[in-house]
Design a protein around this nucleic acid. Structure first.
Lengths: 194, 194
DNA sequence: TTCGTTTCAGAACGTATATTCTGAAAACAA
DNA sequence: TTGTTTTCAGAATATACGTTCTGAAACGAA
């Protein structure tokens, strides 16, 4: 009976993610999304309720994209990632920050701009970092067994590696050169080894 | 001849810093500043030109406050700070994040929300982190001499310690518990030692 | 006191924003 | 075809924003 929708919600989310990531939550208006996607205002509000919900949806989509990135880093070519896999993973992130069109991490940006203002954002951000921790944990347990890293409590190692990632993300927003970033990661990983 | 000004610019900056820090650049309006300070709009624009300039002034003021914090951390009670001083310094930061009324670092927030949008902000942020690096460098040179830390190039150590700080700031915005933060700092500092 | 200058308090202006409303068009069932 | 339902495109609304303007008030010099 009804008229069929002329846009695909996922493509709207990709466009909105691009805009929110580039400009931030406040500085990106619904008019910006309309202009970029060509989708009518009515369609956006019908599909996503309001701006806050649209933002949360883009954040969830980002989380899924990063999850895919993690799987592709840690589960190929074999299913036994170890410390070398971690080094390669950070190199992938360094390459992405160097050549990709986005600086920094959308979830971290969301945490800073919307922390404590939208509980739903808080929850997604927490889950986002939990995803990453889980991948690191599995890898680090194996690295300890193989004596590739110092023999410390696994949770300490997880927190330490999360710290490397957090620092790297921060650096890429604070005018640190690519060389500085690579040196930092190399040094921080070296200090983990026995 | 003229009528005398009824407010003190520095107290306006303190109030504006509080608001910008809490809400962010976009989400804090000039009306908010007027309401909080009681100063007339005209007075604000006369003293600070416009919102961007007011923001830059608060950022410079924040930089100075942090400089004072660094001096009080590193130049007391003696003038020979070493690795133990660094550990105490991070404990001060941890305490401040735990009991203080602000979460995170205003300069880092500025970098994320306004990076690439206002060159003046970029410059102040760069200088801000350079200040901190300089303090860490002097301390780390001495720590290496005293063999309190592993014998690595000083610039690597500086980058590493800056990384600890960056990670700590990020954690305090990402729902990490106080215990997690303290564990992380302890672990990261331990790995520096021989 | 009077005059000139500056601040004050708030109105005013123009623009931008999030959201809703409106009539026409499209799709499909009957 | 007709009728019903939904989307479309854009106008409309109400608010918020950054900034400027206006007249009254305060201050100090003459």
């Amino acid at each position: 009976m009804p008229r069929t929708r002329e846009f695909h919600p996922d493509s709207v989310l990709d466009a909105a993610l691009d805009l929110f990531w580039r400009k931030g939550y406040k500085a990106c208006s619904m008019a910006d999304v309309v202009k970029k996607t060509g989708v009518a205002r009515y369609g956006l509000y019908q599909a996503f309720k309001d701006k806050d919900q649209l933002y949360c949806c883009t954040l969830r989509r980002y989380r899924q994209k990063v999850r895919d990135f993690l799987y592709s880093s840690f589960l190929q070519p074999n299913d036994q990632p170890d410390f070398h896999t971690l080094a390669e993973h950070f190199n992938r992130i360094l390459d992405e920050l160097e050549t990709g069109e986005y600086q920094g991490c959308f979830a971290h940006q969301a945490a800073i701009e919307r922390a404590g203002k939208d509980p739903e954002v808080d929850a997604i951000v927490s889950g986002f970092f939990k995803d990453i921790e889980d991948h690191y944990r599995a890898l680090l347990i194996r690295s300890v067994e193989l004596k590739q890293v110092r023999d410390l409590p696994v949770e300490d190692l997880v927190a330490y590696v999360m710290g490397i990632q957090r620092a790297l993300i921060a650096m890429s927003k604070q005018n640190c050169s690519i060389q500085e970033r690579r040196n930092y990661v190399r040094c921080a990983l070296e200090l983990m080894q026995p």
